[in-house]
Design a protein around this nucleic acid. Structure first.
Lengths: 248, 248
DNA sequence: TAGGATTGTTCCAGATAATAGAATAAGATC
DNA sequence: GATCTTATTCTATTATCTGGAACAATCCTA
């Protein structure tokens, strides 16, 4: 709420529109960001002049297609994404489960790419989605292996499910285990019924990204974790090797 | 250049970074937008705080992954895109050439979706790309059928190729023909060797989008235009019908 | 390795441009 | 058709942005 300058207020409006998933009016936006109507209106006009917000037939605001323009080509230019693509494809085909890549970008852990599994019931993350830092296998990997790079969200921390492991002694023990074993897991802690197993992509000992296999918990039962973990660890190493140019 | 307020300057920086296709320094950005270094620096910092710009290892700036986040889900939410998807797939499969959908969004004609053909040599437009209003089949369709909605670019108008038809009497005659025949063509006017044939998507008589087939001019010779035009006109009608909910 | 040039970052007084309240217009609701 | 809500415009005030200049870091060249 105590936002910075004018530009940041305008960008907060974009995030607000993105999160709402539905067109919003001036008043509504102003309320959720604690901005006066007239200010909100003017900022929306500025965003609209550059195409970053559109208006539906009723005059309400929604994210504009210029965002698609500005985002186009971004992923293809990211070395990690380029290095990971064939590995994701191969893994998803071999395992039949969804494999995805995430990394830290401007303080958030974002899904950078994915290859969906072949099951009728499968995880289908959306590229660009932000992952919560606790309550996620990849998030825990970052907390354990690159604690200075990530930070807990500002607001009050809530449990996503009854199984969410909130920050505290229990999470600290979990992170210690992650550090020693070199991979992380998430069993129904973010979304009920969803299991994730994550492995690091290390470059010169530093965590530059993470790969994870995700699927219905019923399809990834604990007794099979061992096999999946070996695969995903290998995938993380393969991506790291491709990043360093050892493999064409 | 004579930009508006603070927010618009910041957004111009985003466009500048997008167009450059390579990371840029503060000085470089400031020069291309005629902004003082310190202003550029401060705006970049604001954009960075919200993840809209990232920095490469050398400290230079590039569009940030938050753009991917903000753009995610946008296309899937657009009714025209949803209605067009299966039509694009069917047409591309049947014809073997690339079919794409474009529409006017915030004053620009943007590629909203595409389905690539199967040829080794084929058009591969990028979703989000802006199409020039003259020199493009879809652009001409808009100039002819919705002249009030589109406007020529501000700066000096240049010919993309020796065959580009610049605004003037010749283009006016061309637009009259487009109006009477109900479709538009572009033969090497935008990119040498690229032919496009476009048909309107009409809703209540208003142009709401356009479909086009695009490919190497050698694969779309004039004597075969007739067949392609029929197909693309049918595709435009099919999309319009799906838009009005007549077809599930 | 040192010198010179370019680039990135910080600072601050001054002025522009953003702010927020209130008034008006448009639209929805009953 | 009256009353509510919401969108848009207006304006005085002042907070915030500006941009020149100084400083620091970096790169290039000799």
């Amino acid at each position: 709420m105590p936002s910075g300058g004018t530009v940041e207020k305008a960008l907060d409006i974009l995030y607000c529109l993105h999160e709402s998933q539905a067109p919003l009016g001036v008043t509504q936006i102003g309320r959720s960001l604690s901005l006066p109507k007239s200010t909100t209106y003017r900022l929306l006009a500025a965003l609209g002049r550059r195409g970053l917000v559109d208006r539906d037939p009723r005059g309400r605001y929604q994210p504009g297609m210029a965002l698609v323009t500005l985002a186009s080509g971004l992923l293809e230019r990211d070395p990690v994404v380029v290095a990971a693509r064939p590995v994701l494809e191969e893994q998803a085909r071999a395992r039949g489960e969804t494999i995805f890549l995430a990394a830290l970008r401007s303080g958030r852990i974002l899904v950078l790419d994915k290859e969906e599994g072949s099951g009728f019931l499968r995880a289908a993350p959306r590229v660009g989605t932000e992952l919560p830092v606790y309550a996620t296998a990849i998030g825990k990997l970052y907390l354990a292996l690159a604690p200075d790079a990530v930070s807990l969200p500002e607001g009050p921390i809530h449990a996503f499910t009854p199984l969410t492991c909130l920050p505290g002694p229990a999470l600290d023990r979990e992170l210690a285990r992650v550090r020693s074993q070199g991979w992380a897991s998430n069993l129904d802690e973010w979304i009920l019924g969803l299991t994730g197993l994550a492995a690091p992509v290390l470059q010169a000992g530093r965590l530059v990204a993470a790969v994870a296999v995700a699927g219905a918990s019923s399809r990834l039962p604990p007794r099979e974790h061992g096999r999946f973990v070996q695969e995903i660890l290998a995938a993380g190493r393969a991506i790291a090797e491709r990043l360093e140019g050892r493999v064409a």
